[in-house]
Amino acid sequence: MTIPATLDIRPSSLSPDAAALLGRFVLIVLIAGALTAVDPGFASVSNLLNMLRQASLLFLVASGLTLVIIGGGLDLSVGANLTLSACLAAAAIKTTGNPWYGVAVAIGAGTLIGYANGLMINRLQLPPFLATFGMLWVAQGIAYWFMAGQTIYGMPMSFRYFGTGFFLGVPLPIWITLVVCLACSILLHRTTFGREAYFMGANQTAALLSGVPVERRRLLLYVLSGLTAGIASLVYLARLNAAEPGIGEPLLLPAIAAVLVGGTSLFGGNGNIGGTALGAILLTIIVNGLNLLNVAATWHPFVNGAVVLVAIIADLVISRRRSGSG
């Protein structure tokens, strides 16, 4: 009944996914090595931890986006979602003095925005980029209106612990990132939902005709994307101790870049969360390296844009080869 295992398993030890992850890891080590050669201070524990802390924020925004893209969608509203969630949470904490209200508000606002995205795409059959692009501006507008030109700052220390605290010598945001990364990985690889998401992304029609409740799954994907944006907004708020409009939008481009660099195909059905984590680290290192080389911060959008373009062209080449049409 069963085939002897030796017949099927070829001796090569690495799956293509693992090989790709390893390749990205090697790339990171190489760049880090080069930067250390330029400035030994780069390799200091404090700088590395600081960088990981920056990368963790980017990763949190990119993690939900990864899920959505694997499932064949797109979420351009993650950055604006972070802004709005952070502003609302900051206001909630300020007025109540209770950080847990802030947590509830951020998570609630984040998921609600994700839910609205999913609803627009399911019910109005809008192309995802259009629905979420509209949501970007709506969320941003609400944030500007709500803040009315103010900045809310001065969070209680008990809350700031989320962003600045350490646990076992490692910054708390990194722990949060590890938890989210693990959760996403389990979700993608160890739940039926995850397997269905890959299938939907690879061929939505076939998924529908295989009995996958595509609309419900899609809604959940966008809700999760909103949820991670909400979590990211808490980390942001706790670390920077202030919320104002416009804080999250600049994260959109690097988040998309992190997903693409991490090996998740924009065409869906392919990719993994570990890649996005490495992608986020890679992008952070690049930015950090630019700072080290005294390149002005004004270059960052240019670099992010260039990384997106390079990543999508590479993705095209790979996916054409993969599907055998190239």
Partner: peptide, 9 residues
């Protein structure tokens, strides 16, 4: 979106 980044930069 990518070229937008380039131009803004």
């Amino acid at each position: 979106l990518g070229t937008m980044g380039l131009m803004q930069g």
